[in-house]
Design a binder for these strands. Structure first.
Lengths: 191, 191
DNA sequence: TTGTTTAAACTAATTATATTAGTTTTATGT
DNA sequence: ACATAAAACTAATATAATTAGTTTAAACAA
């Protein structure tokens, strides 16, 4: 039976499975069933599971970049940093399966994956522009913000925050704390 | 042929595979081969792959807690926080396979896993004691430090820091920035 | 020492997944 | 109407996990 599939439809269906059932549950078997097709037919559209996962990672990275860009639009300074960070965390909450796909491409060193990731980094760098940091300070600051946001989102994803305290409040506080530290000491401390 | 295996030997061999070849490569097939035994024989010692992964997660969490405790010994205040955070990051660098095992137990909500994780949290809480934070502030501060440290270590693990700048320097800077922010504003900002 | 018991290992079979090779079918365009 | 190319198929292979049931060897008791 002809289903009229193409690579895009396959990828969208894969994303739906990852979203609804988790990244681990995305198998070619599940995907073929969802599309009403036998497993080998998928090979007409993707080269295999690895190719599928890589494509999904690229899609996820691009979507993340989009929501970050939207959050940054029309804002500057600390407000922009906060908005971007919160958009990132919201994305992970709303699309846990996709986010996991973005973190686990078959080969993290793949140049194409790296290039798309750079795009996300560029947004962060842009948002820090108005801070007028020295080149090295800027890089350290970006690494810190990335760590904070990725770390927070990942722990939330793994159900790591067991205590009852409001998580959104934590996001705000933690970001404020980091920005406060940045504000009063972008130069390294003499130790 | 009798190999004289027991659960402990099986777990240690599993840890070695995870360390040397990565968490994903830890299969019952690889483990059986390493131990000179057929796959089904492993079922005399572990209930299956899920049980093996859970046991490995518990082992990893406990070892992480140990290195954190050692780092905290004899220190207090910010020095203790820094030492614990750096020990955490060092552990992830030296034992990436085990760390990944600690992050991906078959069921993250399993009570036993949760209990061991609490142990790690308790170390962080202890190290923050001398900061004399209000209860809520303490929880937010812990969440922030965890996010920062876990985020940094994970990104490093995924080869996410592509730029050439020294990563150890980043660790120091980022932690200092966070602590500085904490120092000058443990009460929430009026917004 | 001999015999019994138990745990450790085995063989055999089942299920699920991914992959490759080679074939049929169907839509499209000449 | 026919040729082509893409999309789907069947069949077969390989790897992994798991379960059931059997053999074997070590440990212990009579």
């Amino acid at each position: 039976m002809r289903q009229g599939l193409d690579r895009t439809k396959v990828l969208l269906a894969a994303a739906e499975i990852a979203e609804a059932q988790g990244f681990e549950q995305l198998t070619l078997a599940a995907l073929a069933q969802k599309l009403g097709v036998k497993v080998p037919s998928l090979y007409n559209h993707v080269k295999g599971l690895a190719d599928l996962r890589k494509a999904l990672a690229l899609m996820a990275i691009d979507r993340l970049k989009s929501v970050m860009l939207e959050a940054a639009a029309g804002r500057s300074g600390e407000a922009a940093v906060l908005a971007v960070a919160e958009a990132y965390i919201r994305f992970v909450r709303e699309h846990p399966g996709l986010y996991e796909a973005s973190l686990r491409p078959p080969d993290p060193l793949d140049p194409e994956v790296a290039a798309h990731s750079e795009g996300v980094l560029a947004v962060v760098a842009r948002v820090f522009e108005s801070f007028h940091l020295a080149e090295d300070d800027l890089i350290h600051a970006i690494r810190g913000l990335r760590s904070l946001v990725h770390g927070f989102a990942s722990i939330e994803l793994l159900n790591g925050f067991n205590l009852g305290l409001d998580v959104d409040e934590s996001v705000r506080r933690v970001l404020e704390t980091y920005l406060r530290g940045l504000r009063r000491g972008d130069a390294p401390n003499a130790t």
